[in-house]
Design a protein around this nucleic acid. Structure first.
Lengths: 143, 143
DNA sequence: GTTACTGTTGATAACTGTTATCATTATCTG
DNA sequence: CAGATAATGATAACAGTTATCAACAGTAAC
């Protein structure tokens, strides 16, 4: 999915919900999709401030929440650290390997694990909706 | 493992680290292992206060941290909610199914998933240390 | 374009959970 | 028992998030 397409999704979402497409939303949207993955509100706020000093922290936060609601971003909450946000583009779900030395995130997927998770849930008469798998350890560069 | 045994482990840990075995520690220890699993600091604090009104919140918090360090408890951090603590007794690692309606925690283990996780890490030249798997969904009683 | 409606913004206060501070008290060792 | 120092309890500080609210701005109807 391209960024253009993602923007359409957002516009549709806004229209559907009776929300407005403001200048700030456009700025935040563009910045979010060009900035680092796994960025924090603070990180994105600082990134945007360089070219748009007038923008408010709360506005960045609110719009990241909005992007999550529209399905274009995901929240990643690790421990009690700051929440991070990653662009989604309707991509496949993925999990994370998290380096406990450098903090790096590695995205991974494993269909077998996913299927076993569903089985595990089923065995407990539990309807799985979403899941979170985080493997903490030492990444290649930190060995 | 019995609670008596767990108490021995704590005593040994304290001795090793040059820490002291206070009246409050005993109270918190006993309360923690007789209270609900997956309890919060606040929950345990309130539980203890009934019979020991003099005890401080910070003391409960500090000693739960201590129990984690000694290997007798585990922290469970879900989203940005309050940290919960569960007794460990050197038990096998387990994951959680978490009901998004009633908040119930169901403990589960799956050796196959664990092994696949290790493989997945290995495939990324990553040394796994610990992991967290949480499956959110609807439990039997909330269907 | 103008108007009216109401969603949005930006600055900041409030809030929540966690952690630090520090004077006082209690434990442990010799 | 005495000295050293860890622990306690009350509360302040802190961090991240969310709420508040007056001013502003997008949208749709005319």
């Amino acid at each position: 999915m391209t960024i253009i397409k993602a923007k359409d999704i957002l516009r549709n979402y806004l229209r559907e919900k009776g929300l407005r497409n403001t200048r700030q939303r456009e700025v935040i949207f563009d910045a979010f999709f060009s900035a680092d993955k796994h960025i924090t509100v603070e990180g994105l706020f600082n990134f945007i401030k360089r070219k748009n000093p007038g923008i408010g922290y709360a506005t960045v936060h609110r719009n990241l929440t909005l992007l999550c609601q529209s399905g274009l971003a995901d929240e990643i909450k690790i421990g009690t650290n700051k929440t991070r946000y990653e662009p989604k583009f309707g991509r496949e779900h993925h999990d994370h390997l998290i380096c406990i030395k450098c903090g790096r995130f590695i995205e991974v997927t494993d269909g077998k694990i996913e299927r076993l998770q569903d089985k595990l849930a089923e065995a407990n008469e539990f309807i799985p909706v979403r899941h979170k798998l985080e493997i903490y350890g030492i990444c290649r560069d930190c060995k």
